[in-house]
């Protein structure tokens, strides 16, 4: 893997339609280089979650379909697989909203993550200890019912559970959602650590542009199902348009990307600016 680019995930111009009528993603292309963290940014309804679910094949369960374009994961075209098969290939999605098994204990939740692997009891224990090494906080809470742990702990459970499947690639859907900044930082630290020590590639959907870009290598900004801008995380953090729209550093009011591009082309004044 020297001459050709080694991408673990390549999405080429996909369109996703729900219930045969509602288009959620129109034209999204992105690549995740092996071992890197790529952030997928955008507001509510931009198509971030849909893109992730298209990759993990969780779409079918919500009556969604990839109608155009191709997805290639680790050299394999993603078409008719089901989520269990994707997990078998080393791709695990951490769903939006944590989705812990509320009535199971923290430890049972994490062990459930190893369901797809054939491990002996000792191997599971060893894996558990390794996971607790990253998520110290969960070790103290191992016997608690997951439904009664805090939001941050639940997010950690969800990531830890996914790591038990020994993924080559993690899809994280809004890990920062509803969490205090300190916890968000803690979770992103763990994600970075997992990326570096376990070599797991990460595609991360986030609304929290600032945190996401600070922790990612590369970023894509999507809006209403289209990729509007992409570049290295550093370049996006310093991009005037991104600062303006997503990082809240602008002095002007909030707009969307389309308006900025329109303004830039200077064809007509910005109609949406209040």
């Amino acid at each position: 893997m020297t001459a050709e680019t080694d991408n673990i995930l390549e999405i080429d111009a996909i369109e996703v339609i729900y219930d045969s009528v509602i288009a959620a993603v129109h034209d999204v292309s992105l690549t995740v280089p092996r071992g890197k963290i790529v952030a997928l940014l955008g507001g509510n309804g931009a198509g971030k979650s849909t893109t992730l679910k298209a990759v993990s094949t969780m779409l079918a369960a919500e009556r969604g379909m990839v109608t155009k374009g191709t997805i290639t994961y680790d050299g394999t075209p993603v078409k008719t697989q089901n989520p269990a098969e994707m997990v078998g290939l080393g791709m695990v999605q951490v769903l939006e909203g944590r989705r812990c098994f509320g009535h199971l204990t923290v430890e049972e939740n994490i062990i459930a993550g190893a369901y797809s692997r054939r491990l002996s009891k000792q191997e599971i224990r060893a894996e558990l200890e390794k996971i607790y090494g990253y998520f110290n906080r969960l070790k103290d809470r191992r016997r608690s019912q997951a439904g009664f742990t805090s939001g941050g702990e639940q997010q950690m459970v969800a990531v830890a559970r996914a790591m038990m499947a020994k993924p080559k690639m993690l899809l994280l859907d809004e890990p920062s959602m509803g969490l205090a900044p300190q916890l968000v930082a803690e979770i992103f630290n763990i994600v970075n650590e997992l990326n570096q020590k376990e070599g797991v590639s990460i595609l991360l959907a986030e609304q929290n542009t600032n945190v996401a870009l600070r922790n990612a290598d590369y970023g894509y900004i999507i809006e209403t199902g289209h990729v509007m801008l992409h570049g290295t995380a550093k370049s996006l953090l310093n991009d005037e348009k991104v600062k303006d729209l997503y990082l809240g550093i602008s002095k002007e009011g909030r707009k969307n990307f389309r308006d900025v591009l329109r303004k830039e082309s200077a064809l007509r004044p910005d109609l949406h600016q209040g």
């Binding site: 969780m58 369960a61 812990c100 098994f101 459930a112 969800a158 996914a162």
Partner: peptide, 22 residues
């Protein structure tokens, strides 16, 4: 293991399938 899988599915089928429980 099967019992754990069943309880996981009972709690949240979507999350269960996301971690590869068939």
């Amino acid at each position: 293991k099967m019992g754990l899988g069943l309880r996981a599915v009972a709690d949240d089928p979507g999350a269960a399938s996301s971690i590869g429980i068939p």
